[in-house]
Computed example of a mutant assay.
Amino acid sequence: MEQIKIITPEELEKKIENEEELNLVDVREDEEVAQGMIPGAKHIRMGEIPERLNEFDKDKEYIFICRSSRRSENVCYYMQEQGYKVRNMIGGMLEWKGEIVL
């Protein structure tokens, strides 16, 4: 199985500060995202990803986020198998020191 590319919370924060065009997807549950999400992230619960593949574009890279990076890693493996370009934010929201929106 091909290794999943990763991004650290610090690297992601720099990209956001540099106003890079990013595709962030938060795969946590509703009650978790209610406590705050990274600005610009799209919320798609992990369990909904398979039925919402039509919302993803194979030409773009997606950065997946969850609480600790375990669920997002699983999503990354799944998405990569479907032919999508993905990165996992390691450490998840537990390690995120940047801005959050409620």
Rank of each mutant, 00 (worst) to 15 (best):
Gln35Trp: 09
Asn88Gln: 12
Asn18Pro: 06
Pro39His: 08
Met1Phe: 04
Ile65Trp: 07
Ile90Val: 15
Pro39Gly: 07
Lys97Leu: 04
Met37Asp: 02
Glu17Asp: 14
Lys42Tyr: 01
Ala34Met: 07
His43Phe: 01
Met93Gln: 09
Glu99Ile: 05
Leu102Asn: 15
Lys14Leu: 10
Gly36Tyr: 03
Glu99Phe: 03
Ile38Asp: 04
Asp26Ala: 05
Leu12Gly: 11
Val25Asn: 02
Glu11Lys: 12
Gln3Glu: 14
Gly98Tyr: 07
Met93Asn: 12
Gln35Lys: 15
Glu55Leu: 13
Arg52Gly: 00
Val101Trp: 00
Gln82Glu: 11
Ile6Met: 05
Glu2Ile: 01
Ile44Pro: 00
Leu53Gly: 07
Val75Arg: 05
Asn74Thr: 13
Thr8Leu: 04
Val33Gly: 06
Val33Met: 03
Gly98Arg: 04
Cys76Gly: 01
Glu13Phe: 03
Leu12Phe: 09
Ile44Val: 14
Phe64Thr: 06
Glu21His: 10
Glu19Phe: 06
Lys42His: 09
Leu22Ala: 10
Arg52Val: 03
Glu32Arg: 08
Ser69Thr: 06
Val25Leu: 10
Glu17Arg: 15
Asn23Thr: 05
Gly98Cys: 11
Lys60Met: 00
Arg71Met: 05
Arg70Tyr: 10
Ile38Thr: 08
Glu51Thr: 14
Tyr78Glu: 03
Val25Ile: 15
Cys66Gln: 09
Arg70Pro: 00
Gly98Trp: 06
Ile38Glu: 10
Glu10Gly: 08
Cys76Ala: 15
Glu10Asp: 13
Asn54Ile: 10
Met1Asn: 13
Lys97Ser: 14
Met1Gln: 13
Tyr77Gly: 13
Pro50Thr: 15
Ala41Ser: 15
Glu31Pro: 00
Glu32Gly: 04
Trp96Ile: 03
Leu12Cys: 12
Ala34Gly: 12
Gln35Thr: 11
Arg28Cys: 02
Glu10Phe: 04
Ile6Gly: 02
Leu94Ser: 13
Lys58Thr: 12
Asp57Ser: 06
Leu24Trp: 08
